[in-house]
Design a protein around this nucleic acid. Structure first.
Lengths: 213, 213
DNA sequence: AAGGGATTGTTAAAAAAATCACATAGGCGT
DNA sequence: ACGCCTATGTGATTTTTTTAACAATCCCTT
């Protein structure tokens, strides 16, 4: 059993993908799926899938495959997303507002319970029943609200400051949507969402990548 | 010289990161930078950077480092983002609207010149001076507008249909913001932007990943 | 209850990517 | 003009990740 080994970062990334595809398959009525079929749907190698899943346990049944619902539950458990996560959003710009309106967050178990901005004109405004609070008060408020994850949607030049407030608040995970790197202590997990990385990738592939992949 | 070899996918990803960090450094007044310092700012290995850059040419000066502005220009050229790319956006929801308002797209050379949706109530509406057109007319309009890249911001269940229209329109690159996989022919490059992959990553790291990284 | 068929879990091999180490070469001071 | 200093570019090495192959095992039919 592989369970106790070090789990590759790439595996974690793929598990999130598997959940997405499995939920689609479930909606379509599938109850059981083989690694081969799931692989096709995810556009990866079947061995890859079996290996990824084996890190967390033997979820499959030999000769049969994986029970879809059971697998979804197991992966979510393994990832730690089988519960509600309370998040704070910092930066009420276009993107911030769009994310706040995005029903998918709640549906997936990420509840935005605090909204912060440093613009005095935005402070006090209500969005989806939550009042926008001054970013400076983040450290004090975050504990109160039980926030564990921070979402940064500020302009790039203010991303680091937002991060500092979140770190000061004792938050352990940050998803940064601003196109800027941020410094954080070892124990804080920072993930970057950057559209432009993807756009650049596409542009490159169109331009010269014809032969690749 | 490595130039003619196959370029790793991971390298392309990092080049986009380098551009981001270099532009910040430029704003801060840096004119020259060593691979070591750039590495620190990007949180990667210095050799990695030198090797990545060497795939595209000898941009550096031995004993000195890399000239920041020159390097930015060179990388952008290598990636094919040293020009304007015309894009179409399909799906005028919260996220779509936020992206349309996002100034960064234009600043980085991605001009959204067509907006499409299948909702009759949205068709005809004007956003930023561009009229929303029925998705069905995408194939005919895309050529007319000179669109090369498609951005999908529909709900997940409509992502494939949006993709089909884009493919029919002869588009060669798609950035899909909808949480759904899409099928596309070999010659069409598809990139996925999925916040939840990142959120899941953070959740996992907080839950059990303490020992990792 | 026993054997056949199918698909997993896992070990071994291959491929890819990251890192190291150093020779190479440009700039700058003398 | 010469040599030193420094940081690049690149071949060799290590590590990581992916893919292939197959033995183990579970269900299902007879």
């Amino acid at each position: 059993m592989l369970r106790s080994e070090h789990i590759p970062r790439a595996t974690i990334k793929r598990l999130a993908l598997y959940v997405q595809v499995l939920e689609t398959l479930k909606r379509e009525g599938a109850e059981v799926i083989s690694s081969e079929l799931l692989a096709k749907a995810c556009d990866v190698n079947p061995s890859q899938i079996r290996k990824d899943l084996a890190y967390f346990g033997g979820f499959g049944v030999r000769g049969v495959g994986y029970y879809v619902q059971e697998l979804i539950t197991s992966i979510k458990q393994s990832l730690g997303v089988d519960r509600i996560w309370r998040a704070a959003l910092v930066g009420v710009g276009n993107l911030g507002k769009a994310l706040l309106r995005h029903q998918e967050f709640r549906r997936r178990g990420f509840h935005i319970v605090g909204i912060f901005d440093c613009d005095p004109f935005k402070i006090g405004e209500e969005i989806g029943g939550i009042e926008v609070i001054c970013s400076k008060r983040l450290p004090e408020k975050a504990g109160e609200l039980g926030v564990e994850i921070g979402l940064i949607t500020t302009p790039p030049e203010r991303a680091q400051r937002a991060a500092n407030y979140l770190i000061e608040a004792g938050i352990k995970g940050i998803v940064n949507f601003a196109p800027a790197r941020i410094a954080a202590p070892e124990h804080v997990c920072v993930e970057y969402v950057d559209f432009f990385h993807h756009l650049y990738n596409v542009a490159f592939n169109i331009t010269l990548g014809q032969s690749q992949r």
